[in-house]
Design a protein around this nucleic acid. Sequence first.
DNA 1: AATCTATGCAACCGCGAGATA
DNA 2: GTATCTCGCGGTTGCATAGAT
Length: 258
Amino acid sequence: MEKDKVVGLGVRRGAWAKEEDNLLRKCVEKYGEGKWHLVPLRAGLNRCRKSCRLRWLNYLRPDLKRGIFDKDEVDLIVRLHKLLGNRWSCIAGRIPGRTANDIKNFWNTHFDRKKRPSSPAAAAGESSRRAAVKTITASNIIRPRPRNISNNRPIHTKTNDTTNGDNGQHKNNNNIISNPSDSLILLREDDDECIRWWSDLLEMTEKDGATPLLFPDDDRHITDTTLLSPGQGDQDNICANHDGFCSDFCLDVDVWEL
DNA sequence: AATCTATGCAACCGCGAGATA
DNA sequence: GTATCTCGCGGTTGCATAGAT
C-alpha cells in the first residue's frame, strides 16, 4: 500500500489527515450517506469516492465502537463465522458498532490459522478458540436462501431510516435478500418462522458440538441470546439497529442440504 | 540504545451485482 | 439485450508501533 501519495489525476491516497476527516464528516452530516461519487466534490476532498466511503464506514461513523472486542462479541463472531463463513458484512450487521473491516481484521489476527500466536501463553489462550474454528468447513456454513416476494404484498414501511448507504443496500451475495424492506416483510409475516429458525439454529449448534455455545476460555454458557435472536425483543429495533441484517438470517437451514 | 520481529489495523484493489440509459 | 456507472464486499497489502533480543 502506498501512503500519503498523490497519483494519477491528482487523487490523494494513504492515511487521512484530521482536516480531511472533518471535511468528510461535515459533508456526510449535511448530505447524508450515499451518493459517494458526489462526496469528494461536495466535501472538497481530493480523494476518490471509494476512499471516502471506506473512511466514513470504518472510522468516522458516529456509532462506531472502538477498542478491544469483549467476550460476548468474540463469541458472537465465532458463532456467526461458523454459520456464514467470511461474510464479514453480515457478521458485522449483528454486532452493533463494529465494522466488517474491524471484524475481518480481528478474525485474521486472532483466528486465522495461517498466523501463529506470538507466545506460548497466547497460543494456549487461543488454542481453544482455534479449536472451535477448526471445524469450520465449506460444507457446514449455512447460506441464506432467496425468497420470492411479490410486488403486490403490503410493505410495512419504516420512516426512521435516514441512510441509504452502507447496510442500506445489500447485494445479493450468495442469494441474500437484497432489500431491507424485504426483511421487514419476512419479519412481519414470518415471525414464527424466524423464531423457529433461531431456536433450531441454537439447538443445532449446541448439539453438533463443533462450536459449543461457550466462551472459549471458560464454561459460561451463553444465556443472553436476545442479541442473537430476531424472535426476541423489539422487532422494530432489529431492523432499525442492524439495518438489512435480518434479511441475511431469515433463511431455512435445510435448503442447502448442509 | 539500537536493531529486529511480530502484530494490529487502516487503506487499497479487484470483482460482482444492481440500476439505469 | 447490452453498455456503463455506482456501490459494496472480501481479500490483501504495508505502515506504525510494541515487544523482544
